[in-house]
Design a protein around this nucleic acid. Sequence first.
DNA 1: GTGGTCTAGACCACC
DNA 2: GTGGTCTAGACCACA
Lengths: 135, 135, 135, 135
Amino acid sequence: MGKDAKKTLLVPPISKAAPGPLYQQIVDGIKREVSEGRLEPGTPLPSFRLLAEQLMVSLITVKRAYAELERDEIIFRKQGLGTFVSQDGVARSRQIKREQTEALLREALREGYEAGMDDKELLDMAKRLLKEGKE
Amino acid sequence: MGKDAKKTLLVPPISKAAPGPLYQQIVDGIKREVSEGRLEPGTPLPSFRLLAEQLMVSLITVKRAYAELERDEIIFRKQGLGTFVSQDGVARSRQIKREQTEALLREALREGYEAGMDDKELLDMAKRLLKEGKE
Amino acid sequence: MGKDAKKTLLVPPISKAAPGPLYQQIVDGIKREVSEGRLEPGTPLPSFRLLAEQLMVSLITVKRAYAELERDEIIFRKQGLGTFVSQDGVARSRQIKREQTEALLREALREGYEAGMDDKELLDMAKRLLKEGKE
Amino acid sequence: MGKDAKKTLLVPPISKAAPGPLYQQIVDGIKREVSEGRLEPGTPLPSFRLLAEQLMVSLITVKRAYAELERDEIIFRKQGLGTFVSQDGVARSRQIKREQTEALLREALREGYEAGMDDKELLDMAKRLLKEGKE
DNA sequence: GTGGTCTAGACCACC
DNA sequence: GTGGTCTAGACCACA
């Protein structure tokens, strides 16, 4: 088995053309995997080197992403063993996402008011987007 | 009455401590003024030099902000005459804000789903925020 | 009869919101009037002051426009008498416009080539625009 | 081989003597390269610093040109990575050129009418210029 | 190394 | 006086 054998990706792919820093895309991708239960507590994450190779990014970029996830206590590192999803990683990532949801919603509604929309229009737009997202 | 008497600001103040580029704050502030009808079509905006002095930022920063507003066709500039709110500036700024509202809402709802929230929870959160905003 | 009585405008109106320098708009407007025969050779043009008042622009702006027209020999000034359309003003203004037509056409065709259009497409576009202009 | 060896220019040269802003020449040059397929989507453009050195203009001037190209979505910039031709950059630049063609054509025909030319004369002039361009 | 923002000034065209 | 272009530099975030 050669060094370029196909491997299952434990984290979502990223795009260099996408807006925003690469490390943020990695952070968001892992948070999403954890939050939606595809990465369970205790699961080991790929090593810096492996992930950097899979995503075709610099090692330092992966390090920065893992550092941010560790800061948010979604993952933890055990010296010499590797990196793992923390016990309450699911809860924490969901909580962070919930707070983010509220912040974005607040911002969206403020913009809507400034665009001259009223409460009903805003709620209708939200309902429409919810329905669209289902299709 | 001294030379540093209070003058009416035609644009909102900005904060160097706030996150995000200074020029963006100027852009957003003027868009808001136009969108909410406090700056009507044809109204002259303060010159680069005057606004830079009032906001205590570099002339260049104001230039950049005005350039972005002109690109969005919210204002137009005439050499030797000054800068003015364009004829359909209100409509354009409202349209831009409306699109921004939809984009933010979409992003918020996606985050909410990823946090495990269902449609009802999301709409309830939106309703709560709308009520809070009124107080 | 008061000083603000209605007068027939001998030159087309201008717009401060239109792109390009004000003096250029005046120049173009008068060239068009002469070229199309509405201002005949020998006709006196309004004085600086009168035209400046009618167009609501600075006197210096009108002076500059007249200077450019005189340079092109479309009008001539007689000390103490006023400004008049020159004898061969029609021919000259038509010639200038004809040269301008060729220059613009050349530029348009070059852009079209760079956009990947071929000769037929370009001629078809020209024919379409000619027909549209008639309606 | 010295340090000032010839390098292949990825963008067309500019001229300080030419009319119009320098940054516009850079913009037009790159748009042309993209439109005609010499710069393909995904291709990295030279960095600000390199291009400024090659063209012998200020770094700021190149920045401004790139900013305008990004606004037209012909290129995109990623911090730390560089500047690239966007995925639909070819289509966008062609579309922009096509619109420019129509605008110039419209203006040319209007000038022609004002010069007293009829449809046939205008089309003949266009055909003549097309033939000349071929030689 | 890359791009992103901000600053300080020059000179010119236009009104 | 106005805006339009060009220059010269600083400091920061990202890879």
